[in-house]
């Protein structure tokens, strides 16, 4: 599945490791929450950056104490209609101050890219090739945002405030 990061298709530097697979050396690995809970001590010895994949019923509060160990947190959309991971991403960014990569995995589709970006996702395992090609178009569809998000897009409220300030200063 193509990986989109910083707006470009990128090679994935991470390797997913199954719960019963041996931990490979010399590469960055992504494990499940179950594996992390079981093999925490072993995994912490790992010299490579560690990633974790959370299912949609596994809130990041379960790993809040351990966030420092993870360079990547993959949040799963089992179906795109399951929107829990949007809130998880917001929590990770806004409330827990997580600065690492947050990756959208699962049923990741074009019409949700912008919502995901705004909630703090910064890499995307995109399901359809065609959606990858449409990445730029999908992001350009909307340029006005009412809500503050976990990204750098300026919400309307701030734009209005600037307008008011500019008016006052002239």
């Amino acid at each position: 599945m193509p990986l989109v990061k910083d707006g470009r298709v990128t090679d994935d530097s991470w390797t997913a490791v199954g719960d019963d697979d041996q931990r490979p050396d010399g590469c960055s690995i992504i494990v499940s929450l179950e594996r992390w809970q079981k093999d925490r001590e072993d995994l912490r010895k790992c010299n490579q950056p560690l990633g974790i994949r959370l299912k949609s019923d596994q809130p990041p509060s379960l790993i809040e104490e351990d966030l420092g160990h993870f360079g990547l947190i993959a949040l799963e959309f089992p179906v795109y209609k399951d929107g829990r991971a949007y809130s998880y991403a917001r929590r990770l960014r806004d409330e827990m101050g997580y600065k690492g990569e947050i990756r959208a995995v699962g049923n990741v589709l074009r019409d949700q890219f912008l919502f995901m970006l705004r909630c703090g996702f910064d890499s995307f395992e995109v399901q359809k090739e065609k959606d990858v090609a449409a990445w730029k178009d999908a992001l350009a569809e909307m340029s006005v945002f009412y809500q503050p998000g976990a990204d750098t897009r300026t919400p309307v409220l701030s734009l209005r405030q600037r307008k008011i300030a500019a008016k006052k200063s002239t």
Binding site: Y80, K81, Y86, L114, F115, R118, C119, F145, Y146, Q147
Partner: peptide
């Protein structure tokens, strides 16, 4: 109305 319009976090409740 404005806050809820295309809310990125709450469009798939």
């Amino acid at each position: 109305r404005q806050w809820s319009t295309l809310h990125p976090e709450f469009s798939f409740l």
